[in-house]
């Protein structure tokens, strides 16, 4: 990556996500233990931690793909409850990119991008297609718009998935291990797109093990283990002077190669 963003170089705005005393169980298993997290507008947060530590579950709670049992989550002033209207309102504001892309295989790349614009935003088809093409250009694959997802490489599919989320003009983007299902040579094309997003001031929460990305882009790195936030800090401090033993162990394991 050539672009380097100085941490804190962008002025951070008001709180956009506020998580208070969040607890979640899968049956008997306590996945998230008393999580408190505030995210400011324009903030770029990288969440890392060993597998099973609850990182994915945490960001999936933010657009209620997972239901939490205790605590409160407020996104852009909307409290997440059972109320389906509130849930849909939040989901319109929050884009999500999945590890396995989850593109709709029966629709073309362009149709993948316009589907929600047409059926959620009730937008005319032509206008929706213009917006979709704009974002496909931004992720540098406008020429693939008429193809089906199965005809694209993993990296291209993930870029389409990012464009599909961006079409809804979200205020927050959630990334759930966006590069872990990709071949090594395709990781950078996806990370480049994400860096570009960060430069434009998008609020991002990203679960990833790409520590180079975290160093360059994040203004906060969060380390989770066993359902708790163990440590959080600015990337320089986080990587160079980790405070907690578990953080040190984790970093030594993923950085030693």
């Amino acid at each position: 990556m050539t672009i380097d963003i100085q941490a804190n170089s962008i002025e951070l705005g008001e709180t956009i996500i506020k998580i208070d005393g969040l607890n979640k169980w899968y049956g008997q298993f306590h996945v998230l233990k008393d999580i408190n997290l505030d995210v400011k507008r324009g903030e770029r947060i990288v969440i890392c931690g060993p597998s099973g530590s609850g990182k994915s579950t945490l960001i999936r709670c933010i657009n209620r793909l997972e239901v939490h049992q205790e605590g409160s989550i407020v996104v852009d002033g909307i409290l997440l409850t059972e109320d389906t209207k509130h849930i849909n309102d939040v989901r319109r504001e929050v884009g999500m990119v999945f590890q396995h892309f989850n593109l709709f295989p029966h629709l073309t790349v362009l149709e993948n991008c316009t589907l929600a614009l047409i059926w959620v935003r009730k937008m005319p088809k032509k206008e929706a297609e213009e917006i979709a093409m704009r974002y496909l250009e931004r992720v540098k694959i406008p020429e693939q718009s008429q193809k089906y997802p199965g005809q694209l490489s993993g990296g291209q599919q993930q870029r389409v998935a990012i464009a599909r989320s961006l079409c809804m003009n979200p205020r927050v983007m959630l990334f759930d291990e966006p590069t872990s299902a990709l071949d090594p040579e395709m990781i950078s094309e996806v990370l480049d797109v994400m860096v570009g997003l960060a430069e434009d001031g998008m609020t991002m929460l990203c679960v990833t093990h790409e520590m180079g990305f975290a160093r360059k882009v994040a203004n906060r790195v969060i380390f989770m283990d066993e359902g708790q936030i163990v440590e959080q800090n600015e990337p320089e401090a986080f990587f160079n002077h980790p405070q907690n033993d578990r953080t040190r162990l984790f970093l030594s394991q993923i950085l030693q190669h």
């Binding site: 657009n63 793909l65 849909n88 989901r91 319109r92 929050v94 884009g95 999500m96 999945f98 396995h100 989850n102 593109l103 709709f104 295989p105 029966h106 589907l115 929600a116 059926w119 959620v120 998935a161 599909r164 989320s165 809804m168």
Partner: peptide, 27 residues
């Protein structure tokens, strides 16, 4: 039809009905 398809559709703010009609049933 994998659960990821439903999740992706919900994450875009699609209603349950539109998700079934436009994403799940065609597949």
């Amino acid at each position: 039809v994998s659960h990821g398809q439903t999740e992706a559709s919900h994450a875009l703010g699609m209603s349950r009905r539109d998700t079934v009609r436009l994403v799940v049933i065609p597949q």
